[in-house]
Structure formats: structure tokens, C-alpha cells
């Protein structure tokens, strides 16, 4: 089994779940995240490991990036979900993978994405009293000067 057939199966089962398809990754619609992932985890693809969960600040939106891994087929699937800045909430994956617990807390801490349904949505690396999210591109702090991009 390879990535292409995995994507094909998603398309068959969830006809309007995929928002964008590129050779490297697929972008899912926010609301179809949990059903698609549940299917990927329990189905024949056996993506039993949530290898990595992170986010990228795209200035007007935040892109949440999931790396799912299947030990059985030895394939890594990259899934993205685009969240507009006005509504940075997404369903938590903690019911599916326990690994999501800390990884989502980290994304919340550094990007400000709220994961609904997460059992323990606290900051993880920064102090609790912080209000900013350091990995956002518009992050400002006394003493921190972003280098000019060449």
C-alpha cells in the first residue's frame, strides 16, 4: 500500500473531505478531521501512530500539520488543516491517540490554536500567565528582534 492508494480510499469514503491535494500532503477540511482520522487509524491502512503534530503560521491563517505513521505499511502520511486566524479552534485528537495530548498542548502554547475536547488544555512549555504565542510570526517581545529575511 502506498500514499496514493491511501488518498484514493479517503476520496472514495469521504468524497468532500479533501480540500487540496499535492504530492507531499493532503489538506483536509476541518470538520471531517476526526472521521477521516478514525477511519485511517482503524482501517486497513493502520495508521496507529500519530508521529508528529505541529503547526505553521501562514500569517492570515494557521496550518495544523499531522504526520501519521503506519508501522504496518511503513508509510508516513502528512495531513494539513488550514485554520483562519479568526477561528483558531479544531477538534482534539486525544480520543484517538494519547500522543496528541502533549503535542496539542504544545501547539496551543506556541500558536494559540485551541483544541476542543482536549482534557487538559493548559500551556506546556511557557508559564501559565503568558498571553502571547511565541511561534506566531507577529510575536513581539522586548529584546526579541526578528532578523531581516534575505
Amino acid at each position: 500500500m502506498d500514499i496514493a492508494s491511501v488518498i484514493q480510499r479517503i476520496e472514495e469514503q469521504f468524497p468532500c473531505a479533501i480540500a487540496e491535494k499535492t504530492p507531499g500532503w493532503i489538506t483536509l477540511k476541518k470538520e471531517s478531521l476526526i472521521p477521516v482520522f478514525h477511519c485511517l487509524m482503524t482501517g486497513p491502512e493502520a495508521f496507529i501512530s500519530l508521529h508528529c503534530l505541529t503547526a505553521v503560521d501562514r500569517k492570515d491563517s494557521v496550518e495544523v500539520v499531522y504526520h501519521l505513521f503506519s508501522y504496518h505499511h511503513k508509510i508516513m502520511l502528512t495531513v494539513k488543516v488550514l485554520l483562519p486566524n479568526v477561528d483558531l479552534t479544531i477538534d482534539s485528537l486525544t480520543p484517538l491517540w494519547d500522543a496528541a495530548n502533549w503535542l496539542e498542548r504544545e501547539v496551543f502554547d506556541l500558536f494559540g490554536v485551541k483544541f476542543s475536547g482536549h482534557p487538559d488544555m493548559r500551556r506546556i512549555l511557557n508559564p501559565d500567565h503568558w498571553t502571547t504565542h511565541p511561534l506566531r510570526k507577529d510575536f513581539k517581545q522586548d529584546g526579541f528582534v526578528p532578523r531581516p529575511v534575505k
Binding site: 508528529c52 505541529t54 503560521d57 495530548n101 502533549w102 504544545e106 529575511v149
Partner: peptide
């Protein structure tokens, strides 16, 4: 996880640390 945008600095660099997941258990 490296995301580049054509500049010499990476646009985003995420480090998936093994101990992070190992400790969460």
C-alpha cells in the same frame, strides 16, 4: 519538519523530540 519559503532561514522548523513523547506516557 522543515518548511522553507525560498529564503536562507527556514520558515518553520519543528523538532519532534523522542523524549517528549516518551515522557508523556
Amino acid at each position: 519538519y522543515i518548511v522553507g519559503d525560498g529564503n536562507i532561514f527556514p520558515y518553520r522548523l519543528k523538532i519532534r523530540a523522542p523524549s517528549f513523547s516518551n515522557l508523556s506516557v
